[in-house]
Structure formats: C-alpha cells, structure tokens
Design a protein around this nucleic acid. Structure first.
Lengths: 218, 218
DNA sequence: GCGGGAAACCTACGGTGTAGGTCATTCGTG
DNA sequence: CACGAATGACCTACACCGTAGGTTTCCCGC
C-alpha cells in the first residue's frame, strides 16, 4: 500500500471534499479543523484540495452550504381540500432547521457566522411567505416574520449548540432568590418541548401583529 | 527609545491587556487577531502576555467579558409612585444590548459563540425577571421570557453584525415574485426602527402567553 | 505517437500558539 | 544595609498552519 504516484487520480471533487469536511468538523470541532487534517482524512496531499476549492474560507463555505442543504421541510400538501396553516408551515420549518442544527452541533456556529446565499434557504423562506399571504396576513407582518423567526431560531439554537453552554450563567442562589426559584423551569434546556413552547410565544406575537381577522391569527 | 531591559515592568495587567485586545479586534477583526499582534500593539514580547492570561482562549474570554461588561441598562426608578412596566424593562435591556453590539460589531460573534458566565448578564436577567413578577406574570412565562428575548436578540444582532451579511440571500426576482414584492420592506435592515418593530412582535407574544389579567399583557 | 491539459504531489515561506528557560529588578526579611 | 526569593519581563525553539509556486505524471483527442 504505497503512496499514490504523481499523476493518478485520487477521485477528488468538490462534493467528496465537502462531505469529508463536514464529517471532520462533526468529529473534531471547528477549532481543530484545517486543510492539512482534511487532506490526511482524504489520504491526499494538502495542496490537492486547492485544485477544487479556492482556500480554507471557501472550504468552510462548502461545509456551511452542504449542511444547510440537508434542511428538508416536509411541505407536502395534506390534501386538495385544505392547505397548511402558516403557523403549521412555520413550525415544520423550525423543526427541520433544528434537526439539522442538532445533527451538526459543531457546524452550526459556522452557519450563523457567515453570510448565507443558499437557494435552499430561499425556498424555505418562499414557502413560509406564501403560506402567510394565503392566510391573508398583511405584508407588514409577512415581511417581519422571517426576521423574527430565524432571528430567534439562530440565537436559540446557537446557545444550545455551543459547547459547554448552560441555560443561565452560574449565579449565587442566595443573592438572587428570584432567579433560583425559576431554575427548575429551565431544566428542559435543549429539549424539543422547550423549543416548541418558546416557538409558541414567538408565533403568537406575529399572529397578534396580524390582527384578529387573518386566518390562524389567534 | 530602545527596547525595555529585561527586568523592568511594562505595566501590564489583565485589564490593560483586555482593553487593548478589544481595540485590536474592533480595528482588525477576529480573523486577524492573535497573541503576537496584540503584543506588538502593547509594545511587549508575546510571552509577557502569558503571565497575566493563560492563553489565547482565555484572552478571547477576557475580550468577551469586557465588552459584555459595557452593557449598562438604564434601570433607574422613574419615581416612587410608578415602577417600570416589564415591557419597558425588556425594551431598555434590548436597547442597551444592541448598542453594545453595534459598538463592537466584530466582537459580537465571539460573544454569542462562547459560554457566558458574566455577573453583568445575571443582573440584567434579574431585573427583567423581577419586573415581570412585579407585574403579576405567571412563572411559566417569566422563565421563558429571557430565553425568547435573548434567543431573538442574539440571532438578530448576529445577522446584522456578521460582515457582508444581507437581509435575505440573493434570489431570482423573476422566479420568486412573492418575495420580490416584499423586498422594499426589508430596506430598513439594521436600523433602530427595525429592531423596535420586531421586538414589539416578540414582546406581544410573551404578553399573549401571560393571558389578559397581567399588567402590560396586551 | 504525440502534444497539451488536468490532477496530483513537493518544496518552501511566513505566520501562529505556546512550552521551557533565562535574566534583571523589586520586595520582604533579618 | 545585605541578601534570597519572587516577580515579570524577555528569548529561543518547536510543531503546526495556510498557501504560492513549481514539478511530475497520467489521460485523452488528434
């Protein structure tokens, strides 16, 4: 099992490289990720990677893009007679996004830390926006909804994804009895039930802004 | 102006180091930040820094801690007869937090990417929680409020803080006419008015969860 | 058979974080 | 005042990093 000779193909391409990079970040974390380690993982010379990806930044873009591409919102029509509520669409989108975040907790901080230009993200937004318009919500609220929803989701999931994160900074229970009394309620930190509950509050806020006339407003 | 001789003090301490580090990140960004560059800035040997800070990670902790310490919520009692509404407290907290983020846009991603244990954060939480209880909101909502509020704020401010970020990934206006129609409403991206409007929605959601009886619920 | 491009490898450079050691000054103690 | 220890700075060196530039080999169409 000698090293590959110089001209033979190693079967590299952007897809294989990106997949290996995702796996490497999943395993070792962003901190330890690097071109040379990735090359080792692929059994390849570091510089070979540069024939398919411009550099480390582009590599991280590819990782981000790959993982974001995994988000698949189950948006199938339940039937011809009834289309989905906008809140239903919002919740399904949120769940798909959360599942991705928990599948790749060490990639997620990367995702929210770089500008996104993925078409996948656009079509998820499109579906949400379309559902809201269908339900008669005013444009003002429709335009704000993605900002509120993904603002919340990104911040929330980031906090649950960063290593060693805790619900609330350690505090002196004697000095802050009020907060100490609340502590038991923070025990579901990071669970599905927690996200659903907080999501209820966020969606209720948007519904409130829409006024009582729109479908699914209250 | 020759180099300092070996035993003389350079006046280093954790505070001065942290302040210089914040200034350096503000100027050059996180990417370019490093121990050696910081040492240059301080006119000091790189290894001298290690006598006051354990390493680069601890240095970034200090930066994060320093900047978070700048958050000062104007929480003064307006008078003995009337105390502040919980929504008022929440808005003031959000504004103080946002001001910090916009003062140090290149530090903010660092802040949300590492576990926080700052006492400043605790006292801000404490004030919010206290106001909500004063107004008679149920514990269930009081416990969720910081999660929703800071979840949203962190995600929102991160998106507005990451370099080169845009409101929505570039999309084909012809393929997505629905979203193209919404684009004008996203023109206030990053302004104070935008945050206030989105904040209204978030707080309305929490108020809704509290039910109609609580003060400031609707 | 042969020329050219593609895909891999190799070398080398300037940069990084930091472990370990050295040395002048300062301070507490007698 | 003398002196040993602690302090806080500096210096050296190492392993690693991203990547510019050059070299080698293979494959494919003519």
């Amino acid at each position: 099992m000698t090293a590959r000779s110089r001209g033979t193909s190693a079967g590299l391409d952007r897809g294989r490289i990106a997949a290996a990079a995702v796996a490497l970040v999943d395993r070792d974390g962003l901190e330890r990720f690097g071109v040379r380690r990735l090359a080792d993982e692929l059994g390849v010379d570091p510089m070979s990677i540069y024939h398919h990806v411009k550099g480390k930044a582009a590599l991280l873009d590819a990782v981000s893009e790959t993982v974001l591409g995994e988000v698949a919102v189950d948006d199938a029509d339940p039937g011809t007679d009834s289309r989905r509520d906008w809140q239903d669409v919002a919740r399904r989108t949120a769940h798909a996004y959360r599942d991705m975040a928990y599948r790749h907790p060490r990639v997620f901080p990367l995702l929210v830390t770089r500008a996104q230009t993925s078409p996948v993200a656009v079509s998820a937004l499109e579906a949400l926006v379309a559902a809201m318009r269908r339900d008669g919500l005013p444009d003002r609220v429709v335009a704000d909804a993605p900002m509120v929803l993904f603002g919340f989701l990104n911040g929330h999931l980031l906090a649950r994804t960063v290593e060693g994160q805790v619900p609330v900074p350690a505090f002196d229970a004697d000095a802050h009895p009020t907060m100490a009394a609340l502590a038991p309620r923070w025990e579901d930190f990071g669970t599905a039930a927690e996200l659903d509950r907080l999501l209820d509050a966020v969606l209720a806020g948007l519904a409130h802004q829409a006024g009582p006339t729109a479908r699914g407003a209250a």
